[in-house]
């Protein structure tokens, strides 16, 4: 393996504005065989993850990014003067997961699934750029169609929609609920 390849990749991830995808790394290092690049990246990830440093590299939003380690969150927040992290409200989270699982989807379909008018919630999500409008549905009224964005993936640390909680994971949670209920039964 070419010497320093690992460090080159590290520098690329460092300057990249968006999560840096493997394709982009390979394209930049086109003078090296792709297998070597991949190997160097793996090595870089291993050393970074095991190193006792304040920052690490994670795979999120379809690429690699530098982040601080979770255990240093309190200090980072103190430094940035962010007291409390603003989390999504349960209405937002609900609407967002409906869009994620049922996309492409219209507002009335979302509202029907929630049994709650969701126009305000979808507006907040649009503003947060967690969902986007991708067109209109060819049905009466030509309603707008919504999809989740790249930012949505990055927000939850997902690389693609395939990484959303699976049917099995969901079934497990529902199953756990049931066992709890059974246990508490008199």
């Amino acid at each position: 393996m070419a010497p320093g390849l690992k460090d080159i990749i590290e520098s690329l991830i460092f300057v990249s504005l968006e999560p840096l995808s493997l394709e982009k790394i390979k394209a930049t290092l086109s003078d090296h065989p792709p297998e070597e690049v991949e190997q160097a990246l793996q090595e870089l990830l291993q050393t970074t993850v095991s190193a006792e440093r304040g920052i690490t590299i994670i795979q999120s939003g379809g690429g690699y990014v530098f982040t601080t380690r979770p255990e240093f969150d309190p200090w980072v927040r103190r430094f940035l003067k962010i007291d409390r992290k603003s989390k999504l409200t349960s209405a937002s989270l609900e609407t967002l997961s409906i869009v994620a699982y049922h996309q492409p989807i219209t507002l009335s379909e979302i509202s029907a699934l929630r049994n709650v008018d969701s126009s305000y919630t979808i507006k907040t999500l649009l503003e947060k750029k967690l969902v986007k409008i991708t067109g209109r549905k060819k049905s009466p009224g030509n309603p707008l169609i919504y999809r989740t964005t790249e930012r949505f993936l990055a927000y939850f640390g997902l690389n693609s929609l395939e990484e959303l909680p699976t049917e099995e994971e969901i079934a497990k949670i529902l199953g756990e609920d049931k066992t709890v209920e059974q246990a508490t039964k008199p």
């Binding site: 999120s60 989270l93 609900e94 699934l113 927000y155 939850f156 959303l164 909680p165 969901i170």
Partner: peptide
């Protein structure tokens, strides 16, 4: 809806994790 709620609880955990990582 129950499924969505379950998915929400998983996503909520992920959100929590991600919010402690700073880029």
């Amino acid at each position: 809806f129950q499924k969505i709620k379950a998915a929400c609880s998983i996503l909520k955990e992920r959100e929590e994790e991600q919010l402690s990582l700073w880029t």
